[in-house]
Amino acid sequence: MAPSLLLMSSSRVNDSEYLQAYAEFIKGHFDAAQEVLFIPYAGVTMDYDTYTARVQQALAAYDIRIKGLHTANDPQAEIRSAEGILVGGGNTFRLLQQLYHYDLLAEIQAKVKQGCPYAGWSAGANIAGLTIRTTNDMPIVEPPSFRALELVPLQLNPHYVDVHPPGFHGETRAQRLAEYMTLHPGTPVLALREGALLEVSASAQVIHCCTGVNGSDPAFLFRAGTQTPLPAGTDLNKLV
């Protein structure tokens, strides 16, 4: 069965309220679920109870029931019984480390392959790719491997920006992704501006754009030394 994925770049767009720019997408994505399992492991400076409560509050108006995975006595069994899986942003290295610690990668992969809808933003989107080698985050912890969920056959780079402020002499995001392409020319990288998201269904992998995205294109595809702009409505099935 084809995966059902909603991969969002960020939790906000410009000055929007927490998760509100994406709320209608999230509601539609989990429409058949009575309860959605939330994975808060990317949170570092916010404890898991607080993080889960924040997500619950943000989605309460949309009748989406949220349960924090951290409250489960058996996280693997909780994944196996989930009707929907939602993964929050934060630090991607910490998130992946915790998924390895609880031995959850194979469980999530199997559940999603069975048709369970998966959604994530920022770090939660990052881990849906092949590896986390194109995250923007600092490696504050060391997971056993950079291999991630492999739910899509590409790398992801949420929060993509292409500004180069005057006087800034560090590498731009595009230059960093060019370094990755140099060493991995055959692996595509999907860069999502804030407010952009990738929706994957049985028939398509479509780029969407929320109101307020800065820039003419919500996403870019980096591969083999090229950078291709992706307008809203682009179906990645035709490109990767």
Rank of each mutant, 00 (worst) to 15 (best):
M1D: 09
L5E: 03
L6N: 04
N14F: 02
Y18H: 11
A32K: 15
P40Y: 00
T45Y: 05
A53D: 14
V55I: 11
A77H: 02
R80T: 07
E83A: 02
L86Q: 06
G89E: 08
G90V: 05
F93I: 01
L95D: 09
Q98I: 03
L104E: 11
A106R: 10
E107M: 03
I108G: 05
Q109E: 13
P117W: 07
Y118K: 11
Y118A: 06
G120H: 10
W121L: 08
A123H: 02
A125R: 11
R133H: 09
N136I: 12
N136T: 14
M138L: 15
P139L: 01
S145R: 04
P153M: 10
P166K: 13
P166Q: 09
P166V: 12
H169D: 10
G170R: 02
E171K: 14
T172C: 06
R173D: 14
A174R: 08
R176F: 02
E179M: 07
E179F: 03
M181L: 04
T182G: 05
T182N: 06
T187R: 11
V189D: 07
A204V: 06
V213H: 09
N214K: 15
D217K: 06
P231S: 08
D235Q: 12
D235G: 03
N237M: 14
L239C: 01
